[in-house]
């Protein structure tokens, strides 16, 4: 049967490509199902500076593409489809996708996570009209303008630093009184005159008539509400795991991440999870790649035991 494999990998990010590489080198017939483009979240990163082996950093898009080249070298099959559900049969796992059904004895779920949303009024209506989730895509639309970045993690601070190339001023709005981002990034942002910080502050609304004009803010410590005039807002808060279709299939954490042990095994024999999608992930390219390798080795062990 053409649609039957030993292993199916769901997702196309670093964890998946790493798993695909190890699985195909172990001569497992392996299919990788990705919804859009191999590479995952990192394809939006201007420069990845903490992945070992690239002392001068590497663009996320290039790193993703190199990982794909390496993974497909040993026969990894890749298809573009949206996964709609997973069914655990007696002998096989069945993956339902927008392009039909695929079957395999083992499954590695590594579909990563998506950027979080603020969930405030105006966000959905003004998306693409000043509300953005991708600084490298949209920064150039905000030349000489005042913009806000929401968040305090690595993505937010990287975005703020990148956006100073275009914007006249970048205001980082963070709900806590210190950054979560790596020290070296934070130091860079503090030293950049164009970047200002609004601490202990959350965005309550995004306003504007067809284009973003102002933000409604609230200080979480004092409760004081205020307005801030900006022409753009880049949202870099949290990540949501892509596990909606997995409820009732594998155990999920309260936040929706997949629970695994240190061998990347879920509670279901033959189903493994790796990368950002699993609970407790360090959410780095390097940790995702490690997870992928572990999951592939566990899958190989499982397949030879059945």
């Amino acid at each position: 049967m053409g649609n039957s494999y030993q292993l199916i990998i769901i997702g196309g990010g670093p964890a998946c490509l790493s798993a695909g590489l190890d699985a195909t080198r172990a001569r497992l017939s392996t299919l990788l199902i990705e919804r859009a483009i191999p590479g995952g979240q990192i394809i939006n990163a201007e420069l990845v500076e903490n992945y070992p082996g690239f002392p001068h950093g590497i663009s996320g898009a290039e790193l993703g593409s190199l990982m794909e080249q390496q993974a497909t070298k040993y026969g990894l099959e890749i298809i573009m489809a949206e996964v709609e559900g997973v069914e655990v049969g007696e002998e096989e796992k069945i993956v339902h996708t927008s392009e039909g059904q695929y079957r395999a004895k083992a499954l590695i779920i590594a579909g990563g996570s998506e950027h979080g949303k603020l969930g405030v009024p105006g966000e959905e209506e003004l998306r693409g009209r000043g509300v953005s989730y991708c600084a490298t895509c949209d920064g150039a639309f905000f030349k000489d303008q005042v913009i806000a970045v929401v968040g305090g993690g690595n993505v937010a601070i990287n975005d703020a630093l990148f956006l100073t190339r275009f914007a006249s001023k970048v205001i980082v709005i963070h709900r806590r009184d210190q950054l979560r981002a790596t020290k070296i990034l934070s130091e860079g942002a503090f030293a950049r005159p164009k970047i200002e910080f609004l601490w202990d502050t959350v965005v309550e609304s995004i306003g504007g008539d067809g284009q973003v004009r102002e933000l409604g803010l609230r200080n979480v410590k004092t409760g004081t509400e205020s307005k801030l005039e900006v022409s753009g807002i880049f949202v870099a808060v949290g990540l949501r795991p892509n596990t909606g279709y997995l409820e009732g299939v594998v155990a999920l954490s309260q936040e929706g991440f997949i629970l695994v042990n240190d061998q990347m095994e879920t509670g279901v024999p033959g189903i493994f999870a790796a990368g950002d999608i699993r609970a407790g992930s360090a959410r780095q390219v390097s940790s995702a790649v490690g997870d992928g390798a572990t999951a592939a080795i566990s899958a190989e062990r499982y397949l030879s035991s059945i």
């Binding site: 483009i37 693409g128 509300v131 949209d138 639309f141 905000f142 067809g210 284009q211 753009g232």
Partner: peptide, 23 residues
């Protein structure tokens, strides 16, 4: 008013009907 890419704009009879932002 496009300030985010990729944006797909679907026109019908010369008017933009649907705007799809992002991947």
């Amino acid at each position: 008013g496009i300030r985010s890419i990729p944006t797909l704009l679907l026109f019908k009879e010369g008017k933009p009907m649907t705007q799809i932002v992002g991947l």
